[in-house]
Nucleic acid binder design. Structure first.
Lengths: 217, 217
DNA sequence: AGCTCTTGCTACCCTGCAGTAGCACGGGCC
DNA sequence: GGCCCGTGCTACTGCAGGGTAGCAAGAGCT
């Protein structure tokens, strides 16, 4: 999840220098995780620009300089959240494709797993979608790259299903984008303890996506 | 479109006092429209919090105090944009329902018109979706209220179609939300001069929504 | 021509927050 | 027990940007 660790961190933060023994670096990683977790909650509920690092620090019962010894700046924190968001979805997609089966079975599996991941990690996914404009341009590029990989993999699955005669649609990559949209929508829409349960939403997503790729009457 | 005019504006801005003759108030309305237009472009491409009012002023070849004589503050400007965004969609929906026809015909009409409006006014719709967190709480409430009306009207149309045996789905209001999501997605996704034309996107939206409400094979 | 009313601008203020310098405290080690 | 190093904190700085006070320039009227 924190693929950047040791690369991104390696530029001046203390944790990087301190990572001499395994235990120490584990502790450092844990602290980073707690920071990003709490930050994502706040960014999710109040927006990135509006949330101050003092507020994040307060939630962790620490002070701002503490955060700065694990993150270079506020932007890096946002990047980490966005990266986590898209990476979680991408991993769920790839994992689902490990399971053998027809394109139809695999697509169902994909939608189910990704939808679940989105619901469970709403804070990350939602921030990743909403705050793209606040990312440094280089960071934004990398995030878009991951997103693009997601779309491509999904698109290949669709093409495979079409080839096999299971699916019917006009254009695979366009359809993949629509499916991505339906999945994304969950993050804006689902509300824990709200009118509809996670399972209902996941089931809906599966049924919608299936209706989308099979021939209508 | 500017329903607030005369109410919201009536508290101290010069334009309100100046609106003594018809021509003057028309000119004032025009200036407000130009401000909101340019602001929405910038908010759309760079985000609300990141965009400074100096930047908005510059695009209009005026200065910041100029804006402040037509808008009480930055928040009111955002509200106006969001209000425009949702109101445009709502009006498109209501207009489409004026046309007589079966539920199926009406739903197609609705999706087509709303999708077109979303594409044509992407800057407003997108900002309205993305920047909700930055609205003052009272403003946010009013916007959500409009959104809710949209969902309700759509939901009633769906229920009517189900009654008539044209549609088949589990729950009308949940289905309405999914349709809303599909339409919203267009605003994040469509890119003028991009890989796909407006017409293709609109057609896709119609076909997806129809697949969503009719019985699958 | 002077008077006034409108409109936009110049030139500010001031707060809130990202980011930093350097200290204090505690625990392990000689 | 003294020394050092890792860790987090106190106490700042700097500045960007929202918001304002008050002037200047023009237009129309008498």
């Amino acid at each position: 999840m924190f693929a950047a660790e040791g690369t991104v961190t390696a530029d001046g933060t203390r944790s990087a220098r301190a990572a001499t023994t395994p235990l120490k670096s584990e502790v450092a990683a844990y602290k980073r995780r707690r920071i990003v977790e709490e930050a994502s909650r706040l960014f999710f509920s109040a927006g990135y620009e509006t949330t101050t690092l003092d507020a994040v620090a307060e939630r962790l019962h620490v002070t701002k300089p503490f955060i700065y010894s694990y993150y270079k700046n506020k932007g890096e924190l946002l990047y980490d959240i966005c990266q986590t968001g898209i990476q979680l979805s991408l991993t769920a997609l790839e994992d689902a494709l490990e399971v053998e089966g027809t394109a139809t079975e695999q697509l169902k599996m994909v939608v189910e797993r990704v939808a679940r991941i989105i619901i469970e990690n709403q804070q990350y996914i939602s921030v990743y979608q909403r705050e793209e404009k606040s990312l440094a341009s280089e960071d934004a590029r990398r995030i878009r790259e991951l997103r693009h990989r997601f779309d491509q993999i999904l698109s290949r699955l669709l093409a495979r299903g079409k080839q096999a005669g299971e699916f019917e649609f006009d254009d695979a990559s366009r359809t993949a984008l629509w499916i991505g949209g339906i999945l994304s929508w969950i993050a804006n829409w689902y509300h824990e303890g709200g009118r509809w349960s996670a399972t209902e939403v996941v089931m809906d997503a599966i049924s919608i996506v299936m209706r989308l790729v099979v021939k209508p009457r």
